[in-house]
């Protein structure tokens, strides 16, 4: 995964447009390959739990890649430039921040549309039955995690007061906790109705699937703690 991340950023920084186009094509077709790959695994094809898993892993990785492609570009690259640029203009900082959020949401929405369509098309082509309900349920946690990461990144990388940064962070954490909780309750309830023996393996499975996000979450927490010790970083 680290190799992919490193490669991704090397390609983004590169001025070789052919390479960028090839990489963009790989990112675009990967969802289809991904679903095809999982559909051939015997435990993950037709049963309901399998569908959940397909949807869940699919969304997790789609948003992970989306985060790499859009989120990092938007927020990390702007750390040194955006603050200075806004400070040098008559634009109100809150307006600029709102603008960033709106741009980010538009980009997210486009990716979500692409994710849902590509997953539905892949499943149709491969004759895998995925219900709308499954699609939506599996969608909540990765989206929450993605919003959490983005919400933490925005206040940390842009110049807003320490107090506001923590309010946004607390809001984001509450967001993921509440939606994650709802998601798990629904999952458990559904599985109770099918088979009690499946609950704990399912829970373990979903918990393990959060791991792709862990480096980012831990990294962000370390960043927050270091900021707390030295809030001057915000103003420098």
């Amino acid at each position: 995964m680290n190799t992919i991340i490193t490669m991704h950023f090397q390609i983004l920084k590169s001025t070789n447009y052919k390479l960028k186009i090839i990489w963009a094509i790989i990112l675009l077709i990967y969802p289809f390959v991904f679903v095809a790959m999982f559909s051939v695994l015997p435990t993950l094809n037709t049963n309901n739990g399998g569908n959940y898993r397909i949807c869940f892993i699919y969304y997790t990785y789609t948003f992970f890649i989306m985060y790499l492609s859009i989120g990092r570009q938007f927020f990390s690259d702007s750390k040194n430039t955006f603050n200075k640029f806004i400070s040098s203009t008559p634009i109100n900082f809150s307006t600029a921040l709102a603008g960033q959020y709106v741009s980010f949401l538009i980009a997210s929405l486009l990716t979500v549309v692409y994710s849902v369509v590509s997953l539905a098309v892949s499943c149709k082509l491969l004759n895998i039955s995925v219900t709308v309900n499954n699609l939506m349920l599996s969608f909540i946690l990765p989206v929450s995690a993605f919003l959490l990461m983005a919400s933490i990144h925005i206040p940390l990388t842009l110049k807003i007061g320490t107090k506001n940064a923590y309010i946004i962070t607390v809001f984001s954490v509450s967001f993921i906790v509440i939606f994650g909780f709802i998601y798990l309750i629904i999952t458990i309830k559904n599985n109770f109705m099918q088979s009690r023996s499946k609950i704990f393996p399912e829970l373990l499975f979903y918990t393990l699937n959060i791991f792709p996000f862990l480096p980012f979450i831990i990294g962000t927490l370390i960043y927050i703690i270091s900021k707390k010790k030295n809030p001057m970083i915000y103003t420098n």
């Binding site: 430039t81 200075k84 040098s88």
Partner: peptide
């Protein structure tokens, strides 16, 4: 009067602050 004042100020930082 920050916004009003900044309409009348041109600023150059030690490094370029535009998206590359």
């Amino acid at each position: 009067n920050e916004s009003k004042i900044k309409e009348d100020i041109g600023i150059v930082f030690d490094e370029m602050c535009f998206n590359e």
